[in-house]
Design a binder for these strands. Structure first.
Lengths: 120, 120
DNA sequence: CGGCATCCGACAAGATACTG
DNA sequence: CAGTATCTTGTCGGATGCCG
């Protein structure tokens, strides 16, 4: 069994943060919910077609347990469930933004590199 | 065989970024190299005792391939190898910082929550 | 529609022993 | 010290079927 952060008081901030958002698809999910909110499961799926449903649900559950994401179930037929970021979850916006910004830098870096290589 | 980002031109910035720094221990490694640079393998290990050596080496290799980290080998006995962040790698500082900052927020959030729970 | 359960193959990760 | 080889364990992902 895994030891949750609740038992680990000696975590550094980065360890604590990574234990929560370090999951394979979590940043991507949070990114979606920053783009648009609330979102239904099927909508998240269309944002992230590369993630299979089982994984998506798992990661959503974990985010929900950690109170990053809130899940609202409407008792209707057919079922309707909406996901959105909690208050702490919304505070992740700078994280996602900085990652996207860096992605931009990195893309530029790659292009410069390939230009050098092809221009020899 | 895995398709590298080099063949994928349709990536969004976030996908590109995550494909590079999304590895399980990569943020942690980059964090180390931001604390102190250069670092030897054994030093990184002491920073990150929870990561086993094989994984550490793998992730370092991947970061090296993506030109995030540079690896310098000194031809001496006993062997000496130093790792440090490249220029693009150093640009990841805001990412790591924002993650740590959020970790701080989240810790506060947890403490407030447990205070509520225990104080009922 | 949202979600869980199951089976199954592929591969990532962990522990440990070993080499130059 | 840095890194490899090997074996075991665990996680991921697809497919499929079932339920409210």
């Amino acid at each position: 069994m895994e030891i949750s952060y609740k038992e680990k008081t000696f975590f550094t901030n980065k360890d604590l943060a990574l234990s929560v958002i370090g999951g394979r698809w979590k940043i991507a999910i949070i990114w979606c919910l920053l783009q648009q909110s609330p979102l239904r499961l099927s909508e998240i799926q269309s944002y992230l077609p590369e993630v299979n449903q089982r994984m998506l649900i798992r990661q959503l559950r974990e985010l929900e347990e950690d109170k990053i994401v809130t899940r609202v179930v409407y008792p209707v037929v057919p079922p309707k469930v909406e996901y959105q970021l909690s208050e702490v979850g919304l505070l992740l916006e700078p994280v996602v933004t900085s990652i996207c910004d860096w992605g931009d830098h990195f893309r530029t870096f790659l292009e410069e590199n390939s230009a050098e290589t092809s221009g020899k």
